[in-house]
Write a protein that binds this DNA or RNA. Structure first.
Lengths: 198, 198
DNA sequence: GCATTATTAGAGCACGCACTCTAGAGTGCG
DNA sequence: CGCACTCTAGAGTGCGTGCTCTAATAATGC
């Protein structure tokens, strides 16, 4: 019986995904042809469709691969000793890829795809809901710790997510500084959470 | 000499644009076919291309038609008696279409298009820069009036723009309340501006 | 070596696309 | 009325698409 080398398979898969990410970021889902992905990855179309059943699945994989990482970040944040530390951890995680030049394009493509691809929308919405829940829990703990939040925890959690989206929207502009942006977001969040000590 | 009735022309043009807006909002630029726009507008393809030279031009018109309105809003805001009133005016204008169900899709399509369509990007960026300038001016006046903004006026202006974009992105979620959202954004902005009287 | 199976390239396919062309209907003017 | 022109529909065009199929090759276990 012929046994598969899973490492080799994973490596090729990753290579294809990398090529696909570049294409999708620049041209979007409908705008990239499978042929262009193949060209960039240096493979034939047969190979591409051996690894991914459809172009859509290729795009989905680009994001579903990140889900475990997000789950881990949520767990770490919820396990933090103080709710404020957990919030910082989670906010930092939300901005992890801020410096990646592909991300603005990919985010735009993803936002758009979520409006018209049910399966993709559910995947993204589920992950976002989990993160929102984690944020809400942390904010409730913070409130119990003496913070004076500007809004109810759940609303505030929504605003934090929106603020992080806003950061990625700004990431395409020239002269964008991810570090400064992250620092400003933390200050804004701190203000909204109403931490007693600056 | 045969003279054209400009009203009739404008009416038909508007009808086509309305149909196009619906299609673009749901399927994006690459995802909508000119045939589907024609079907929805109840016209033949000959008619469509009589009014607009290309599909791209059709999409561009959807946004360029709004530019005069934006300019008017900026002027009104800058002419306000107190800078705080001007800010409120401009923020409200930014969220004008928050209740329009088509807007989240159109915004996503526009954000994406800005990443790959130079001409469109310039058009949008120019308008945004003007609005940012107006916000900056208003924030400088507010600071001279005794406000303690959290950031320099120009940075703050950027955050306000990004937040308003983010609001539109959130507008697709179920249970979304445009009025509450607007009120909350105004409170957040007020907090960032640091108005002496709440 | 042999059987089995994973992997690969790329020609080929059916289809949908943006846009053009043509021919005629509608419309204001002299 | 007839001219000059706009407006309109829809068939037609050439091209690019996502994806399938075939057939060859490489890798493995016996």
């Amino acid at each position: 019986m012929r046994t598969v080398d899973p490492e080799q398979h994973a490596r090729k898969r990753a290579l294809i995904l990398q090529a696909a990410a570049r294409e999708f970021a620049v041209h979007g889902v409908d705008g990239t042809s499978t042929a262009s992905v193949c060209r960039r990855a240096g493979i034939g179309s047969g190979t591409l469709f051996h690894y991914f059943p459809t172009k859509r699945a290729l795009f989905h994989a680009l994001f579903s691969d990140d889900l475990p990482r997000n789950a881990a970040a949520r767990e770490r944040a919820l396990a933090a000793a103080r709710p404020g530390d957990g919030l910082d951890l989670l906010v930092d995680h939300l901005l992890t890829d801020l410096a990646d030049p592909l991300v603005p394009g990919l985010l735009a493509a993803a936002l758009f795809q979520a409006n018209r691809d049910e399966e993709f929308a559910v995947m993204v919405a589920t992950d976002e809901a989990l993160t929102r829940d984690a944020l809400t829990t942390l904010l409730e703990r913070a409130a119990a710790d003496g913070c004076r939040p500007a809004f109810p925890p759940e609303r505030l959690a929504g605003w934090i997510l929106r603020l992080s989206d806003a950061c990625y929207l700004a990431a395409g502009e020239e002269g964008f500084d991810p570090v400064a942006q992250t620092a400003e977001l933390r200050r804004i969040v701190a203000g909204l959470v109403g931490r007693p000590a600056g």
